[in-house]
């Protein structure tokens, strides 16, 4: 408690001393209450003689030699990082200071567009998310409410669109993946500024996996029909299809990648063998070989 009281006294004394100094030196400064990031502005000072003017904030620090009693001009592009600033006038042992704010420019210049995922299965509700942070030309977050449009479009021209208002510089949306595989474009736009991401929609799990068997010498030639997902998209080549042959306590297994849409393999022909086919967790048909 004693320390807190001492601190209060220190603050009062410091502030009183500062004001006394300023009054003693008859100098003051008047910055604008707010400055738009990157805009030109001016600070009027009073008094006479030379002084140093500092503008100090977490985003920037500027120093200028000034003639008291004159207006100091800061051209466009000098003070551009949004935040809270203190303007301090220092002349010998005299100082004066005033706080002011730099606010983001209202015109968007860039977007940070976080779109996920870049690849997903077809037919997923709200499967694709987009989140956009809006920045001005100086990379200040534009926190004023701003309209953002999101658009997911596929090569055939079909599109899902969402209009969202950004709060505190951020807007987000979710859209469904479509039933058709392909490379879609996901675009976020604010005024004339846009950012595009690619979303690859890929086939889902195989659906109705089916194989047939034919005799080929001492072997059975096994081949699936073209493997498709439940929406009719062709499952991509390279996908593993597992053939398992069981006969009299023995078993043979082959993991075969799809090639040109089908999986094919030759396995030994054994009377009474049972052959099954699967891909991942999806089971296909069974064949009993006679």
């Amino acid at each position: 408690m004693r320390r807190r009281f001492a601190f209060l006294i220190f603050c009062i004394a410091f502030a009183t001393m500062q004001r006394a100094r300023a009054e003693g030196g008859s100098m003051s400064l008047s910055p604008p209450g707010t400055v738009k990031a990157g805009n030109a502005f001016a600070i009027q000072t009073t008094g006479s003689g030379q002084a140093v003017l500092y503008i100090v904030g977490l985003g920037q620090v500027i120093g200028r030699d000034v003639q008291l009693g004159e207006t100091t001009f800061f051209p466009a592009g000098v003070l551009y990082n949004a935040g809270h600033y203190v303007a301090i006038l220092v002349a010998g042992s005299n100082t004066d200071n005033t706080a002011f704010d730099v606010v983001p420019a209202s015109r968007p210049a860039s977007l940070s567009f976080l779109a996920r995922p870049s690849r997903l299965s077809v037919g997923l509700h709200d499967g694709i998310s987009g989140c956009v942070y809006i920045f001005d030309a100086y990379h200040n977050l534009i926190t004023a409410p701003t309209s953002v449009s999101f658009k997911l479009s596929n090569p055939s021209g079909a599109a899902q669109e969402r209009a969202v208002v950004a709060h505190d510089g951020v807007a987000w949306t979710e859209v469904d993946s479509t039933a058709k595989e392909g490379i879609d474009k996901f675009k976020a736009q604010v005024d004339e500024v846009s950012s595009t991401r690619v979303v690859e929609q890929v086939p889902g799990d195989p659906c109705g996996l089916k194989m047939s068997a034919t005799q080929s010498g001492k072997d059975i030639e096994l081949a699936t029909t073209p493997v498709r997902d439940c929406s009719g998209n062709a499952v991509p080549d390279g996908t593993i299809v597992t053939f398992t042959e069981t006969y009299g306590g023995d078993q043979s297994t082959v993991d075969v990648p799809l090639k040109r849409g089908i999986a094919q393999v030759e396995m030994p022909a054994h009377d009474g063998a049972t052959i099954s086919v699967a891909s991942g967790v999806v089971m296909g048909n069974e064949i009993h070989w006679r």
């Binding site: 989140c131 510089g169 987000w172």
Partner: peptide, 13 residues
Amino acid sequence: VFYSPDGLSIQLI
């Protein structure tokens, strides 16, 4: 106030 859908950003005031 905001946790982005992808889990890659969190906004606080």
